[in-house]
Amino acid sequence: MSDTRDRPATAAGTWRLGDLTVNRVGFGAMRLTGGVPFGRGGGRSDRERSTAVLRQAVELGVNHIDTAAFYFSATRSANELINTALAPYPDDLVITSKVWPGRNPSGEWWWAEPGQLRGQVEENLRQLGRDHLDVVNLRLPQSWATRSVAEHFGALTELRDAGLVRHLGVSNVTSEQLAEARVIAPVVCVQNSYSVDAPGADQKLLRECGDLEIAYVPFFAIAGGGRESGAGATDDEAVLAVARAHGASPAQIRLAWTLAQGPHVLAIPGTGDPKHLAENVAAGALRLSDEEMARLGTVGRADG
Protein backbone atom coordinates (compact mmCIF):
# COMPACT_ATOMS: atom_id res chain seq x y z
CA MET A 1 0.00 0.00 0.00
CA SER A 2 1.35 3.43 -0.94
CA ASP A 3 2.35 6.09 1.54
CA THR A 4 -0.51 8.29 0.30
CA ARG A 5 -2.99 5.52 1.09
CA ASP A 6 -1.44 4.90 4.50
CA ARG A 7 -0.89 8.56 5.29
CA PRO A 8 -3.48 10.58 3.31
CA ALA A 9 -2.23 13.91 4.67
CA THR A 10 0.68 13.53 2.25
CA ALA A 11 -1.61 13.57 -0.83
CA ALA A 12 -1.60 17.37 -1.22
CA GLY A 13 2.20 17.63 -1.16
CA THR A 14 4.48 19.62 1.10
CA TRP A 15 5.68 23.17 1.75
CA ARG A 16 8.43 24.72 3.83
CA LEU A 17 8.21 26.77 6.99
CA GLY A 18 11.76 28.05 6.94
CA ASP A 19 13.89 24.90 7.09
CA LEU A 20 10.95 22.76 8.26
CA THR A 21 8.98 20.73 5.71
CA VAL A 22 5.32 20.07 6.45
CA ASN A 23 2.49 18.29 4.68
CA ARG A 24 0.06 20.86 3.35
CA VAL A 25 -2.87 19.35 5.26
CA GLY A 26 -2.35 20.05 8.95
CA PHE A 27 -4.53 20.26 12.04
CA GLY A 28 -5.89 23.13 14.11
CA ALA A 29 -6.21 22.45 17.84
CA MET A 30 -8.73 25.16 18.75
CA ARG A 31 -11.79 22.89 18.96
CA LEU A 32 -10.15 20.13 21.00
CA THR A 33 -11.19 21.76 24.26
CA GLY A 34 -14.91 21.29 23.59
CA GLY A 35 -15.80 24.66 22.18
CA VAL A 36 -14.10 27.83 21.11
CA PRO A 37 -11.87 29.99 23.30
CA PHE A 38 -13.94 33.14 23.03
CA GLY A 39 -15.88 34.53 25.94
CA ARG A 40 -15.85 33.32 29.53
CA GLY A 41 -15.37 29.75 30.67
CA GLY A 42 -15.65 27.48 27.64
CA GLY A 43 -17.10 24.15 26.69
CA ARG A 44 -16.25 20.62 27.74
CA SER A 45 -14.70 17.80 25.78
CA ASP A 46 -13.85 14.19 26.34
CA ARG A 47 -10.15 14.06 27.18
CA GLU A 48 -9.60 10.56 25.81
CA ARG A 49 -11.39 11.38 22.56
CA SER A 50 -9.39 14.57 22.10
CA THR A 51 -6.05 12.82 22.63
CA ALA A 52 -7.18 10.02 20.32
CA VAL A 53 -7.96 12.57 17.58
CA LEU A 54 -4.46 14.02 17.90
CA ARG A 55 -2.84 10.60 17.65
CA GLN A 56 -5.07 9.73 14.71
CA ALA A 57 -4.03 12.94 12.94
CA VAL A 58 -0.36 12.00 13.20
CA GLU A 59 -1.12 8.46 12.02
CA LEU A 60 -2.84 9.97 8.95
CA GLY A 61 0.34 11.88 8.12
CA VAL A 62 -0.37 15.26 9.72
CA ASN A 63 2.94 16.81 10.82
CA HIS A 64 1.83 20.43 11.30
CA ILE A 65 -0.34 21.32 14.30
CA ASP A 66 -1.55 24.84 15.02
CA THR A 67 -2.27 25.75 18.64
CA ALA A 68 -2.10 28.53 21.24
CA ALA A 69 -1.92 28.87 25.01
CA PHE A 70 -5.25 30.73 24.93
CA TYR A 71 -7.01 27.67 23.48
CA PHE A 72 -8.55 26.42 26.70
CA SER A 73 -11.91 25.80 28.33
CA ALA A 74 -12.88 25.35 31.97
CA THR A 75 -11.38 21.85 32.04
CA ARG A 76 -9.16 21.48 28.96
CA SER A 77 -6.05 23.08 27.46
CA ALA A 78 -5.21 22.38 23.82
CA ASN A 79 -1.47 22.59 24.50
CA GLU A 80 -1.68 20.15 27.38
CA LEU A 81 -3.79 17.75 25.32
CA ILE A 82 -1.13 17.88 22.58
CA ASN A 83 1.58 17.18 25.17
CA THR A 84 -0.36 14.27 26.66
CA ALA A 85 -1.20 12.74 23.29
CA LEU A 86 2.03 13.17 21.35
CA ALA A 87 5.05 13.59 23.64
CA PRO A 88 7.70 12.45 23.06
CA TYR A 89 7.06 14.25 19.80
CA PRO A 90 7.77 12.74 16.37
CA ASP A 91 10.94 14.19 14.84
CA ASP A 92 9.06 15.66 11.86
CA LEU A 93 6.21 17.22 13.85
CA VAL A 94 6.00 21.01 13.57
CA ILE A 95 3.97 22.82 16.22
CA THR A 96 2.95 26.39 15.47
CA SER A 97 1.61 28.70 18.17
CA LYS A 98 0.60 32.33 18.35
CA VAL A 99 1.04 35.18 20.81
CA TRP A 100 -0.09 38.74 21.56
CA PRO A 101 -3.64 37.79 22.62
CA GLY A 102 -3.95 36.11 26.00
CA ARG A 103 -6.64 35.00 28.45
CA ASN A 104 -6.60 34.98 32.22
CA PRO A 105 -7.89 31.90 34.13
CA SER A 106 -11.42 33.29 34.04
CA GLY A 107 -11.33 33.45 30.26
CA GLU A 108 -11.03 37.24 30.05
CA TRP A 109 -8.99 38.49 27.10
CA TRP A 110 -5.94 40.71 27.33
CA TRP A 111 -3.35 41.89 24.83
CA ALA A 112 0.35 41.69 25.59
CA GLU A 113 2.77 44.57 25.57
CA PRO A 114 6.01 43.79 23.69
CA GLY A 115 7.82 42.99 26.93
CA GLN A 116 5.12 40.46 27.88
CA LEU A 117 5.54 38.31 24.77
CA ARG A 118 8.36 36.35 26.39
CA GLY A 119 6.00 35.23 29.15
CA GLN A 120 3.46 34.09 26.56
CA VAL A 121 6.10 32.12 24.65
CA GLU A 122 7.34 30.53 27.88
CA GLU A 123 3.78 29.55 28.84
CA ASN A 124 3.43 27.73 25.52
CA LEU A 125 6.74 25.98 26.16
CA ARG A 126 5.68 24.85 29.64
CA GLN A 127 2.33 23.52 28.48
CA LEU A 128 3.79 21.73 25.46
CA GLY A 129 6.83 20.43 27.35
CA ARG A 130 9.28 21.78 24.79
CA ASP A 131 12.52 23.74 24.86
CA HIS A 132 11.64 25.87 21.84
CA LEU A 133 8.67 26.59 19.60
CA ASP A 134 8.99 25.68 15.92
CA VAL A 135 6.96 28.64 14.66
CA VAL A 136 5.33 31.52 16.51
CA ASN A 137 2.83 33.78 14.80
CA LEU A 138 2.35 37.33 15.99
CA ARG A 139 -1.46 37.50 16.02
CA LEU A 140 -2.68 41.07 15.54
CA PRO A 141 -5.86 42.54 17.00
CA GLN A 142 -8.59 43.38 14.51
CA SER A 143 -8.22 47.02 15.52
CA TRP A 144 -4.56 47.08 14.48
CA ALA A 145 -5.05 47.09 10.70
CA THR A 146 -3.44 50.49 10.13
CA ARG A 147 -0.85 50.39 12.92
CA SER A 148 2.80 49.38 13.09
CA VAL A 149 3.86 45.86 14.10
CA ALA A 150 7.51 46.80 14.51
CA GLU A 151 7.72 46.92 18.31
CA HIS A 152 5.94 43.61 18.91
CA PHE A 153 7.60 41.80 16.02
CA GLY A 154 10.98 43.11 17.11
CA ALA A 155 10.38 41.64 20.58
CA LEU A 156 9.61 38.26 19.00
CA THR A 157 12.80 38.50 16.97
CA GLU A 158 14.76 38.81 20.21
CA LEU A 159 13.13 35.61 21.48
CA ARG A 160 14.10 33.88 18.25
CA ASP A 161 17.68 35.07 18.69
CA ALA A 162 17.59 33.73 22.27
CA GLY A 163 16.66 30.26 20.99
CA LEU A 164 13.10 30.13 22.35
CA VAL A 165 11.59 30.34 18.86
CA ARG A 166 12.85 28.84 15.61
CA HIS A 167 10.79 30.72 13.01
CA LEU A 168 8.40 33.67 12.96
CA GLY A 169 5.10 34.28 11.27
CA VAL A 170 2.35 36.89 11.35
CA SER A 171 -1.41 36.56 11.60
CA ASN A 172 -4.36 38.81 10.84
CA VAL A 173 -2.12 41.18 8.90
CA THR A 174 -2.29 43.47 5.90
CA SER A 175 0.18 43.51 3.04
CA GLU A 176 1.78 46.63 4.50
CA GLN A 177 2.26 45.00 7.90
CA LEU A 178 3.81 41.92 6.29
CA ALA A 179 6.28 44.14 4.47
CA GLU A 180 7.12 45.97 7.71
CA ALA A 181 7.74 42.69 9.54
CA ARG A 182 9.95 41.32 6.76
CA VAL A 183 12.30 44.27 7.12
CA ILE A 184 12.87 43.21 10.75
CA ALA A 185 13.20 39.43 10.32
CA PRO A 186 12.26 36.62 7.89
CA VAL A 187 8.59 35.66 7.91
CA VAL A 188 7.84 32.00 7.12
CA CYS A 189 4.04 32.14 7.14
CA VAL A 190 0.99 34.39 7.10
CA GLN A 191 -2.07 33.11 8.93
CA ASN A 192 -5.21 35.04 8.00
CA SER A 193 -8.91 34.29 7.85
CA TYR A 194 -9.67 33.00 4.36
CA SER A 195 -12.26 30.82 2.67
CA VAL A 196 -14.07 30.26 -0.60
CA ASP A 197 -16.21 33.31 0.21
CA ALA A 198 -13.21 35.50 1.09
CA PRO A 199 -13.07 39.11 -0.10
CA GLY A 200 -10.69 40.16 -2.86
CA ALA A 201 -8.19 41.82 -0.51
CA ASP A 202 -7.40 38.45 1.06
CA GLN A 203 -6.88 36.95 -2.39
CA LYS A 204 -4.34 39.65 -3.18
CA LEU A 205 -2.30 38.92 -0.04
CA LEU A 206 -2.44 35.19 -0.77
CA ARG A 207 -0.93 35.78 -4.22
CA GLU A 208 1.70 38.08 -2.76
CA CYS A 209 2.77 35.38 -0.32
CA GLY A 210 3.11 32.96 -3.22
CA ASP A 211 5.41 35.37 -5.04
CA LEU A 212 7.51 35.71 -1.87
CA GLU A 213 7.48 31.91 -1.24
CA ILE A 214 5.85 32.49 2.15
CA ALA A 215 3.32 29.93 3.37
CA TYR A 216 -0.24 31.21 3.48
CA VAL A 217 -2.16 29.39 6.22
CA PRO A 218 -5.89 30.17 6.25
CA PHE A 219 -8.00 29.83 9.34
CA PHE A 220 -11.80 29.45 9.06
CA ALA A 221 -11.33 27.79 5.64
CA ILE A 222 -14.33 25.56 6.42
CA ALA A 223 -16.35 27.87 8.67
CA GLY A 224 -16.10 30.86 6.33
CA GLY A 225 -18.34 33.62 7.59
CA GLY A 226 -19.36 31.42 10.52
CA ARG A 227 -15.87 31.93 11.94
CA GLU A 228 -15.62 30.71 15.57
CA SER A 229 -19.18 29.37 15.51
CA GLY A 230 -18.27 26.89 12.78
CA ALA A 231 -19.84 26.07 9.43
CA GLY A 232 -23.51 26.82 9.05
CA ALA A 233 -26.21 24.25 8.47
CA THR A 234 -26.60 25.37 4.86
CA ASP A 235 -24.02 26.16 2.23
CA ASP A 236 -23.89 27.97 -1.07
CA GLU A 237 -25.43 26.02 -3.95
CA ALA A 238 -22.17 26.12 -5.90
CA VAL A 239 -20.37 24.38 -3.01
CA LEU A 240 -23.18 21.84 -2.66
CA ALA A 241 -23.21 21.07 -6.40
CA VAL A 242 -19.47 20.42 -6.54
CA ALA A 243 -19.73 18.32 -3.37
CA ARG A 244 -22.42 16.15 -4.97
CA ALA A 245 -20.31 15.67 -8.09
CA HIS A 246 -17.40 14.35 -6.01
CA GLY A 247 -19.44 12.42 -3.45
CA ALA A 248 -17.82 14.68 -0.87
CA SER A 249 -18.94 16.93 1.96
CA PRO A 250 -19.12 20.72 1.56
CA ALA A 251 -16.30 21.00 4.11
CA GLN A 252 -14.09 18.80 1.93
CA ILE A 253 -14.83 20.93 -1.13
CA ARG A 254 -14.00 24.11 0.78
CA LEU A 255 -10.67 22.59 1.84
CA ALA A 256 -9.90 21.31 -1.66
CA TRP A 257 -10.63 24.75 -3.12
CA THR A 258 -8.39 26.38 -0.52
CA LEU A 259 -5.47 24.04 -1.24
CA ALA A 260 -5.93 24.62 -4.98
CA GLN A 261 -5.13 28.33 -4.52
CA GLY A 262 -1.41 27.59 -4.68
CA PRO A 263 1.31 25.17 -3.58
CA HIS A 264 2.19 27.57 -0.75
CA VAL A 265 -1.30 27.40 0.77
CA LEU A 266 -1.63 25.14 3.81
CA ALA A 267 -4.78 23.90 5.57
CA ILE A 268 -5.24 23.60 9.33
CA PRO A 269 -8.85 22.40 9.77
CA GLY A 270 -9.75 21.63 13.35
CA THR A 271 -12.17 19.18 14.89
CA GLY A 272 -12.67 17.02 17.94
CA ASP A 273 -14.52 14.36 15.91
CA PRO A 274 -12.52 11.40 14.53
CA LYS A 275 -14.84 11.04 11.52
CA HIS A 276 -14.54 14.71 10.60
CA LEU A 277 -10.78 14.49 11.01
CA ALA A 278 -10.56 11.64 8.50
CA GLU A 279 -12.78 13.56 6.06
CA ASN A 280 -10.75 16.74 6.42
CA VAL A 281 -7.47 14.95 5.78
CA ALA A 282 -8.95 13.09 2.79
CA ALA A 283 -9.84 16.43 1.18
CA GLY A 284 -6.16 16.83 0.32
CA ALA A 285 -6.57 14.18 -2.39
CA LEU A 286 -9.54 15.89 -4.09
CA ARG A 287 -8.79 17.56 -7.42
CA LEU A 288 -11.25 20.14 -8.73
CA SER A 289 -11.64 20.91 -12.43
CA ASP A 290 -11.07 24.37 -13.88
CA GLU A 291 -14.83 24.66 -14.38
CA GLU A 292 -15.49 23.75 -10.75
CA MET A 293 -12.86 26.21 -9.54
CA ALA A 294 -14.46 28.95 -11.62
CA ARG A 295 -17.90 28.14 -10.26
CA LEU A 296 -16.66 28.16 -6.69
CA GLY A 297 -14.94 31.45 -7.42
CA THR A 298 -18.32 33.14 -7.61
CA VAL A 299 -19.30 32.22 -4.04
CA GLY A 300 -19.78 35.29 -1.88
CA ARG A 301 -18.81 37.64 -4.70
CA ALA A 302 -21.19 40.51 -5.42
CA ASP A 303 -20.44 40.18 -9.14
CA GLY A 304 -20.92 36.39 -9.05
Rank of each mutant, 00 (worst) to 15 (best):
S50I: 01
G18I: 09
V173C: 05
D92M: 03
L277I: 00
P101W: 04
L266F: 02
L266I: 12
A162I: 04
I214F: 01
A223W: 06
D161T: 15
R139Q: 11
G41W: 11
H152D: 06
R44C: 04
A267K: 01
A162S: 14
L168Q: 01
E292F: 05
L286T: 07
S289K: 07
P218Q: 02
G35E: 04
G304V: 10
H167A: 13
S50H: 03
I82T: 04
D92Y: 04
A267S: 15
T234A: 14
W100I: 02
T67Y: 05
H152T: 07
Y89I: 09
G61Y: 03
R5C: 00
Q177V: 00
Q142S: 15
D303K: 11
A29I: 02
S175Y: 02
A150T: 13
W110E: 14
L17A: 06
D211P: 01
F27N: 01
A87L: 09
R31G: 14
G225V: 05
A285W: 10
G34N: 12
R254L: 04
S45E: 03
D211E: 15
T84D: 15
A11L: 08
D6V: 11
T4E: 14
K204D: 15
V281G: 02
W110Q: 13
V136Q: 03
G102H: 03
H276E: 13
V170S: 06
S73K: 10
P199R: 12
A52W: 05
D19T: 14
N104W: 09
V53I: 09
